[in-house]
């Protein structure tokens, strides 16, 4: 944390807190459909789903986009180019739309509280100059707040796992205590995933075919709790 000492930790806690209004509660990344379509997709296992998401989506895609965005140090034109790369690298519409909506929501909150760069990048979203994917927006904002790269990655990884745990509780797949136990088991995996080096032009990679199919089927379904 480059935000000085104990203050940096407090800033990280504020922005990692699920109470921070970011809009992420509306998305399950295929968890809802995977659990409800088990007869068609195969046996559902919440811990396995979460592990696959962290290893094969967050560590290889969201984390990479976040790190690359953080390193751009508020260069909005280059952030927009990275943002377009994330758009081109996210094949399934439900995941693209969810990431854009989360990014826009987070940006709106930060524009209101005056985080440097937030209002200007939000204007670029409005003009269609950038799609506003969540990981890119996080990299922009958390760097602007003085959080270092490692801290930003830790918040991102924690939120990715915690949001799945919250979704699982809301869907009734696990209880609140069990969700926290599973979240704790996920932390070493996040730490391991965080350690892989990221080149400045590292591709955005993702390999979650089963979850992508679930998201695609989810989009065609009627009654549902989450947007993806």
């Amino acid at each position: 944390m480059s935000a000085a000492g104990g203050l940096g930790l407090l800033v990280a806690l504020q922005h990692g807190d699920s109470q921070f209004p970011s809009g992420g509660f509306a998305f399950s990344q295929g968890l809802e459909a995977s659990s409800q379509l088990a007869e068609r997709l195969g046996a559902f296992d919440f811990a396995g789903f979460m592990r696959a998401q962290i290893r094969h989506r967050w560590a290889e895609a969201d984390r990479v986009a976040l790190v690359r965005a953080h390193r751009l140090r508020g260069d909005l034109a280059r952030l927009a180019a990275l943002d377009r790369e994330v758009e081109a690298s996210t094949l399934v519409e439900g995941l693209r739309a969810g990431s854009r909506r989360n990014g826009a929501a987070l940006l709106t909150t930060h524009a209101r509280i005056g985080t440097p760069g937030a209002a200007a990048y939000r204007a670029m979203l409005r003009d269609g100059a950038a799609p506003g994917h969540l990981a890119v927006v996080q990299g922009l904002l958390w760097q602007a707040l003085g959080l270092d790269e490692a801290t930003a990655v830790a918040i991102s990884g924690y939120q990715a796992a915690a949001s799945l745990a919250t979704a699982a509780v809301r869907l009734g797949l696990v209880g609140a205590i069990e969700a926290q136990a599973e979240l704790a088991r996920m932390l070493p995996l996040i730490e391991t995933g965080s350690a892989a080096p990221v080149a400045d032009d590292e591709p955005i990679r993702s390999f979650i075919p089963l979850a992508e199919i679930a998201v695609a089927l989810h989009g065609a379904a009627g009654q549902r709790l989450f947007s993806n």
Partner: peptide, 27 residues
């Protein structure tokens, strides 16, 4: 750039309940 579909995976990652392809054999 219109599209970039990119992945890397080990065979070991496709074993067990955390496999991103479940129990399916052909991807």
């Amino acid at each position: 750039l219109l599209l970039r579909d990119c992945f890397r995976v080990t065979g070991e990652a496709l074993v067990g309940p955390s496999s991103p392809v479940g129990g399916w054999r052909v991807v």
